[in-house]
Every structure is written in structure tokens, then in C-alpha cells.
């Protein structure tokens, strides 16, 4: 590992990147800095990843550090756990979050517990990258948001970036972390922020302020949320794609909402959440995943437990429906402007 002080972000030269480019940049920087970082997964090597997140890395770092694997998610994660236990810092890619289930046993039974089981003698410092979420007409096998399966597991950290700037800084922090991190990349916003209006032209990232990414190394600590917009009317808790959709709805309705991008689900920045809800007295939770047992339920419970005497209205929870991700009815399933807008209206009337 190269020891060097991170550059001051204020002074660092910047360039505009989309989220894919930012992730590629983070991987490149960490592979350059730390020879123990290895990238592995289906099509990540020669092809550079189905979304191009690993493009050029094999050519630059060779086939022993960036390599293609068989189509075996269980094998990918299992090998990564072993590599991590013996000193490497693997960054396996699961091509779509929908494919992660065959690797679940290795993640839950091995990666998540290795430190605990060995009293700290062995660790699993792997970062599992995986595109997740819908909005790309991917149907039920390319659209799921299974983050709650992982937030439920003791020993796993779960990260969901919502901008190129954060994707780079959070991925670097995840790779440097000595515990296993599930790094879910909202693929709907790989190439541009999405406001929920699927029938309108998509804005590219290069028009968004958060596409300005510092060059070189920097990290964003895991467990620290970002206040996207300060406000007084109510608190919005969201992550990934839904940060942009919720922000667009609040802007359209001209409500003074405080929008919090959680960035990291575990560990959760509970201090920022508490301070915000205590100030606003109302809370709207938005996620794309199915509702029952979703991470929104955990957020709702925490807010109720810790901010009950500050609440002026019932907590609102806007989510996907409890169905498999439907193909032709994708935009009926997606928690878009109408569903969020109704919740906003209820909070404003309360």
C-alpha cells in the first residue's frame, strides 16, 4: 500500500465523469496504489465489464490482477474470501445484483463471519461490486434491489452511491476497508441522473454538479451521509437512484425538504438522520426495493425509536411493490413521481 496524504479536494484538479468512469477511475487508482488489489468476475477482464466499469484494467495491470471467471457467483465470492484471508484485497464483480444469490452462502456464512469466527485472526477485506436496481427494461432478472438481504447480515457493510463523485470516493473507501463491503451501483444512473420521468429525455451527468470528480486519490468515509439539500418542511431519506427522483419531486412541488443521501446503509449515519428529523418533525423514506422487510422498515423503526417525541406526522414510506420486478409494467412498479408526490402531499397537509 502506498502511504500518501490524500490531496485536498478543494485544490485537486477535477474532470467531469459519469458514474462508470468514476468507478473505473477508483479501481485504477487503487490497483496502482496497492498491488494486493485484484479485480475478478464475469467478463471484467478482456471485455472490460458489461457496463465497461473495468475497461482497460487488464491491459494495464495484467491477467493475474484482472481476470475473467467462470459463470459461478458462488465460486467468485468463495475465491475472493480465500484471497482476502491470505492478504489480498479482492474486488469481485457480480454482473447484476440479480445474480448474487448463488454467492449468498459464501457472503453470509464465510465473508461476513470470518473476523468474528477467527477472533480477528482472519478477515475478508473484499468489495463486491454489483449493478443493481431497475429502470432499464431489464425485467425480473436484471432489475432487483436486494440490499435489505445484506443489511440484515451481521458483518457486511452495504454501500449505494448516487453520484460519480461519491461513487469514486466511496469505492476507494470500500476497497481500503478491512471488512466485506457490498457495493451496489444503481445502473439506471450510470450515465446520468434520473428524475423518474422515464418518458422524458435523460440528462447526462456532464450537466450535473456532482459529476465533477477530483483527480487522483480521495475517499469518502463509510457511514457518513450527505445532505443533498437542507430544508425545514420534512426529511427525505433515500439512496441511489431514488435520491434524484425524490429531489425532483420535491423541487416540482416546491417544498422545502431536507434531502439526505444515506450513501452507506450499514454502518448508518444515524446522527445526521436524528438531527434532521428532530429539526423537521417529519420523515419520508424512499427506496426502489420491495416494501416488506425492506431497508425502509429499518429506517422507519429507527426514526420512530429515536425521534418519536419530535414527530409531527406518521413516517411515510414509499417503495416498490411486493412483486417480482415486472417487465412490461416496470413504470407502474417503480416508485416514481406520483407515488412519492402523494406521500409528500400527505406530509405537507399533516
Amino acid at each position: 500500500m502506498i502511504e500518501e496524504a490524500p490531496v485536498s479536494l478543494a485544490d485537486a484538479p477535477t474532470r467531469r465523469l459519469n458514474m462508470i468512469e468514476a468507478i473505473n477511475d477508483a479501481l485504477d487508482i487503487m490497483m496502482e496504489r496497492d498491488p494486493n488489489v485484484v479485480v475478478m468476475g464475469e467478463d471484467v477482464g478482456y471485455f472490460g465489464g458489461v457496463f465497461r466499469a473495468t475497461a482497460g484494467l487488464q491491459k494495464k495491470y495484467g491477467k493475474t490482477r484482472v481476470f475473467d471467471t467462470p459463470i459461478s457467483e458462488c465460486g467468485i465470492i468463495g475465491v475472493a474470501v480465500g484471497m482476502g484471508a491470505y492478504g489480498l484485497r479482492p474486488v469481485p464483480e457480480i454482473q447484476f445484483a440479480d445474480y448474487i444469490y448463488p454467492g449468498l452462502d459464501q457472503l453470509v456464512s464465510e465473508a461476513a463471519r470470518l473476523r468474528y469466527r477467527s477472533a480477528g485472526e482472519f478477515v475478508a477485506p473484499l468489495t463486491v461490486r454489483s449493478p443493481f436496481g431497475g429502470g432499464i427494461f431489464g425485467g425480473q432478472t436484471h432489475s432487483q434491489s436486494p440490499e435489505a438481504l445484506f443489511t440484515h447480515v451481521a458483518g457486511l457493510k452495504t454501500v449505494v452511491p448516487s453520484t460519480p463523485h461519491d461513487a469514486k470516493g466511496l469505492l476507494i473507501a470500500a476497497i481500503e476497508d478491512n471488512d466485506p463491503v457490498i457495493f451496489f451501483e444503481p445502473k439506471r444512473i450510470y450515465n446520468g441522473p434520473f428524475n423518474g420521468y422515464y418518458d422524458k429525455p435523460v440528462e447526462p451527468w456532464n450537466k450535473h454538479p456532482d459529476s465533477v470528480v477530483p483527480e487522483g486519490y480521495y475517499s469518502i468515509p463509510l457511514g457518513k451521509a450527505r445532505i443533498v439539500r437542507p430544508g425545514q418542511a420534512f426529511t427525505v431519506l433515500a439512496y441511489g437512484t431514488m435520491v434524484h427522483v425524490a429531489a425532483a419531486v420535491c423541487a416540482e412541488k416546491q417544498v422545502d425538504a431536507e434531502i439526505i443521501d444515506l450513501r452507506t446503509l450499514v454502518p448508518l449515519d444515524i446522527e445526521t438522520i436524528e438531527a434532521s428529523v428532530e429539526k423537521t418533525g417529519k420523515c419520508l423514506i424512499v427506496h426502489e426495493a420491495t416494501r416488506t422487510g425492506g431497508f425502509g422498515a429499518e429506517l422507519s423503526a429507527l426514526v420512530q425509536e429515536r425521534c418519536f417525541y419530535h414527530l409531527e406526522a406518521p413516517i411515510e414510506r414509499v417503495t416498490g411493490f411486493d412483486t417480482p420486478y415486472p417487465h412490461s409494467l416496470e413504470w407502474a412498479y417503480f416508485p416514481g413521481p406520483v407515488r412519492i408526490g402523494e406521500a409528500v402531499d400527505r406530509l405537507m397537509k399533516a
Binding site: 416488506t292 411486493d322 412483486t323 412490461s328 409494467l329 416496470e330
Partner: peptide
Amino acid sequence: LGHGLHHPFHTMFEDVFEDLPWHLKEQ
């Protein structure tokens, strides 16, 4: 796909289970 929604919305909730539980009826 992309040119509108053509299937009845209630079909989204059918066949999750044999019977529709209360929460899927509400949704």
C-alpha cells in the same frame, strides 16, 4: 416496452402467490 403500458395493472400482483394477501390487494 417504452411505448406505454398495455397490460392491466392488477396482473402485476397476480401469481406472486396463489391467493392475493392483504398487502398485495392494497398495493
